[in-house]
Amino acid sequence: MLVRGKADRASRPNLLGDLDIPSGLSASVGISEFTYRKGQEVYSENDPAEYVYQVRKGAVRRYKLLSDGRRQIGAFHLSGDIFGLENALVHRLSAEAVVETSVRLFKRQSLENGAETDANVFHRLLSMTTKNLRHAEDHMLLLGRKSSVEKVAAFLLEMDGRLTSAGLLSLPMGRRDIADYLGLTLETVSRAVNQLQREAVLKFIGKTHREIVILDRLRLSSFDIPG
């Protein structure tokens, strides 16, 4: 069940402003906001790609179920991230809330129409597309790392750049998600994380092992060098 968000409008990210959409187009974009429960689907693979989405609060994973039943996570989208902008008429991956997540959605066709008539909108959409392509390339390189420790280190550095606040890295996703993102088993991820802990590269805060303090970023970065 979708629960329409009730956040103060003034506190919401200005998505239209971020995209430089003219005020004349704003009324036709059709912005809505919904809250998804943990594990609830935002859209499925092959659903019509009629909307573009922005995470207002929480986190979303995009993934594909493989023929053998395994799950490959292609991306995590965090607060402020925009996703669902496809180069086809349907979504190639499924999207699901990692934790309780508020998402804004707006009509893809309206944005495309705006891009045809407004250079600012066109360049912003092009920038978003380029960013998504760059992330896909980075993820491909990450999967090509030789060892599990290298993969986990690269992931933690990525999240450190996107999530860390006041020196604390608070991960919304668990180790199963991390494993499916890195193409590893849950046990392998746990061993790699425990190794980094033993080597005093990081430490955990609390019992969930999702709140991390990185003690030695230089040492952590040394694992993120492709061989």
Rank of each mutant, 00 (worst) to 15 (best):
D8K: 07
D8P: 03
P13L: 02
L16D: 10
D18P: 06
L19Y: 04
L25E: 10
L25H: 12
S28N: 14
S28V: 05
G30V: 09
I31T: 13
S32W: 13
S32T: 13
S32F: 09
P48C: 07
P48K: 12
P48V: 13
A49S: 11
V52F: 03
V55Q: 00
V55L: 01
R56D: 01
R62L: 14
R62Y: 06
R62W: 03
R62H: 11
Y63A: 13
L65D: 12
G69T: 00
R71A: 10
R71K: 04
Q72T: 05
L78N: 11
D81G: 00
A88R: 07
V90H: 09
V90D: 08
R92C: 13
S102R: 13
R104W: 05
E112G: 04
E116G: 02
E116T: 07
E116N: 11
A119F: 06
A119C: 05
F122K: 12
H123G: 06
L126Y: 10
T130L: 15
L133N: 10
R134G: 09
D138P: 03
L143W: 00
R145H: 08
V149H: 12
A153N: 04
A154T: 15
L157S: 02
M159I: 09
G161M: 02
T164W: 07
S165W: 10
A166R: 09
L169K: 09
S170L: 04
P172L: 02
G174R: 05
Y181L: 04
L182C: 00
L184F: 02
E187C: 14
V189K: 02
A192N: 03
V193I: 15
V193L: 11
V193Q: 03
R198M: 00
A200M: 08
A200Q: 11
G206F: 09
T208G: 10
H209R: 15
E211D: 06
V213F: 06
I214Y: 01
I214M: 01
D216T: 01
D216V: 00
R217D: 07
F223P: 08
I225A: 04
I225G: 03
